[in-house]
Design a protein around this nucleic acid. Structure first.
Lengths: 191, 191
DNA sequence: CGTCTATTTGAATGTACTCAAAAGCGGTGG
DNA sequence: CCACCGCTTTTGAGTACATTCAAATAGACG
């Protein structure tokens, strides 16, 4: 069965006709690893629903250092929310980590979707609520815990993903340098 | 005119009848400074819309250190989103900073509101989208900038608020200890 | 005024960073 | 299939940003 419809069904129930309409707004596409789907400074015209592979979003600070904002595996959406919503240039890069299949949803089509299938407005509201909660939790974790504890949390939350990610990116996500991360990991093994 | 309705009008337009219904779901209430509206471990049954004064939300880590999650001044909503949405015990405290007037909206009433005035679903979706964007920006800032740069950003963003907040709370919000914050401020003045 | 909390200041410490270099690993082309 | 290249990871030494603990000072409130 279709992964997107499965996910929608967890929050709202669509009629077969509505399901078809929703799908008709999306465009499936395949991408090779290292493909950059969005660059900082560009306008994020599409939101991506991952059906296969792994994507990630990140910023680049003034020193050229990457900061991973999110990973997206199958069943997850990824976009530069600021840019997508405002249709103004954003600061995020979105890049393919692993050979991926995604569904593209343009901003216009999303707006149309809200009008034609109002239930989808609820669906996205719930999705965004959950993102907000997760994001707030990450902020709290960053303020409350040491790098070691953050890594523990990360390992649990992304246990499936963790072995397919370069350490560099994990380090970036939890907010430390790759060098420090490497040392920390070695230290943790000894215990 | 009513502050809540003004704010709603920025995103969706309600008929006079709908306006009245929306207001009927809310309960105005006044609170003295230092009143705690929500404690960690409790279920957040209400969301608060501030019409006067200042509230703040924070967590308390295992060492008893406060971490300010958000400030809310007139025109802003505040709640423990995780707890409010899931109706499960949360980890946030919500406390009155300055003599406040707020509108209470219970979870049930919000759900009713969504059903009776569907436009409000869009309103809250937009509100939450904006929160998510702001929150993500704060996360990026915390990872990319030094405490000094974060304070600069904070000063600009909350220029109106900054003089009514104890330094302790500002320090906590930007993610440093009050002692360090004090030294940092002195250092910055010299430049 | 006295008490309580917030802020400042100082010294010692720790966590995480920078820079540099070596080692490991994976992919690609000859 | 192996050699080489580029990138990631590891390791080490020195450093910086921020914390902890302690004590003094300043402010706010009853």
């Amino acid at each position: 069965m279709n992964l997107l419809l499965e996910n929608i069904a967890k929050h709202v129930s669509l009629t077969p006709d509505e399901q078809e309409r929703v799908l008709s707004f999306t465009t499936p596409k395949q991408f090779k690893p290292k493909t950059i789907l969005l660059k900082a400074g560009e306008i994020c015209t599409h939101s991506f629903f991952v059906t296969k592979g792994i994507l990630r979003s990140y910023t680049m600070d003034e020193n050229g250092v990457e900061h991973v904002v999110s990973f997206a595996c199958p069943g997850w959406w990824i976009a530069d929310m600021y840019s997508f919503l405002s249709q103004r240039p954003g600061q995020l890069f979105i890049e393919v980590n692993e050979e991926a299949e995604v569904l593209l949803l343009s901003k216009e089509d999303q707006d149309k979707m809200y009008r034609e299938v109002p239930k989808m407005e609820r669906f996205f509201r719930i999705l965004i609520e959950n993102s907000l909660v997760a994001n707030q939790q990450r902020l709290i974790d960053n303020m409350s815990f040491t790098a070691e504890a953050r890594y523990d949390k990360f390992s649990k939350k992304y246990s499936g993903l963790i072995h397919s990610l370069p350490q560099k990116q994990i380090a970036s996500y939890i907010g430390v340098t790759p060098e420090f991360f490497s040392k920390m990991k070695a230290r943790m093994l000894k215990k």
